[in-house]
Nucleic acid binder design. Structure first.
Lengths: 195, 195
DNA sequence: ATTCCACTAAACACACTGTTCAGTGGTATA
DNA sequence: TATACCACTGAACAGTGTGTTTAGTGGAAT
């Protein structure tokens, strides 16, 4: 049975990731050394290199995981359905779930999007949203009808605005509920529609 | 006469800044060493430290200069005047000037906002815009009338959307003219107004 | 019993850091 | 013309972090 070893590996990796996140709350990414991480996680520095290529690899994998989780929730979102529901006064559960996921991983989002750090999670997140936005919108031909602004500018505008909303929420220590955030999001979708 | 020495200093600083920007087009900020900069600028590594504390200081000063230049143009912007002009079918020259400034310094904006880099110019730029937006909007009491979204979310939304527009422009290698960009900007202002 | 595996501890060469210090050559000043 | 000034050079310095390697430990699987 190899499951025991798998679990050992998983536990050390989790310890490393968790402690790394804690360190990033105080220190700049560049000023966090592998030794710092090892000490915080109570492991040998060499052990770190048995699990990750370097600290960039660690960061990259953590960001990747975060985005993968987000993707699952985002796939369920259907903007046209969202709008028809909103017109009836309902708030789509799928939209709420997206914000709930962000709430659940607020620590990571705050750290990765924070000004202390780092190499470009914002850009990565934006690209991620742009792709989803365009993909969904392209399926709905009516959406771009009457748009007086090029599509790429429209999507960059829309996703940046959405991201701005999320960033403000994170900066506000998430005092609003996911439902309240979802309602704001719907309002924004309506504006864009009137473009 | 000390002007000769001032000019010497200015020239080396400019050489350093110019070569640093070139290096950042290819390499990550963290992977650019002081030695790399010195070699590219054809100076001794020690000379670098006669002008800057370290490479963070260099980056910081360059960002600061860029924002200072932007501020001059942004101060002239009067959103209410912009809107009344736009209603008459005119595009405010001041708005065009802002985009012209960005066009003029496209290299720096592209590098500092690029995903290769770095520590948070995006955040800095956004904060800069938020402050200007709020300052201008607060003077115009009518602007927030009927807003169904909290002011901080509104400003974060608006400035992120504007920044998204600029980022898209930079990603598109600035194929649009500053005037075209200013017109898009005016359209966005109109949307927000209808919030 | 022995092979396997995650992990440790220590050492390695290397790169980059920021500082120092004696020296060079052009520029301004008296 | 002498000399004081100034930006800059070249070389050395200790310090810190890097990624890799090596021999060894102890528990789990076969």
């Amino acid at each position: 049975m190899t499951a025991v070893y798998d679990e050992m590996n998983a536990k050390t990796r989790e310890k490393i990731q968790q402690q790394f996140l804690q360190l990033l709350k105080d220190k700049n990414f560049m000023k966090v050394s592998v030794q710092d991480i090892a000490t915080a996680a109570n492991i040998n520095r060499g052990t770190f290199y048995l699990h990750y290529l370097d600290k960039y690899d660690l960061l990259d994998q953590m960001e990747e995981n975060l985005l993968a989780g987000l993707e699952m929730h985002l796939e369920l979102l259907q903007p046209d359905f969202l709008l028809s529901e909103a017109a009836k006064g309902h708030t789509s559960n799928h939209a709420v779930e997206v914000f709930r996921y962000i709430q659940l991983n607020a620590d990571a989002f705050q750290v990765f999007l924070g000004s202390n750090n780092h190499v470009g999670f914002h850009k990565r997140l934006k690209l991620f949203f742009v792709e989803h936005f365009l993909e969904k919108m392209m399926k709905n031909e009516n959406f771009f009808k009457g748009a007086t602004v090029p599509h790429d500018y429209l999507s960059s505008f829309a996703t940046s605005a959405f991201l701005g909303l999320v960033e403000q929420w994170l900066d506000n220590e998430l005092v609003e509920t996911p439902t309240e955030m979802a309602e704001m999001y719907i309002q924004i979708i309506f504006f864009i529609r009137n473009l």
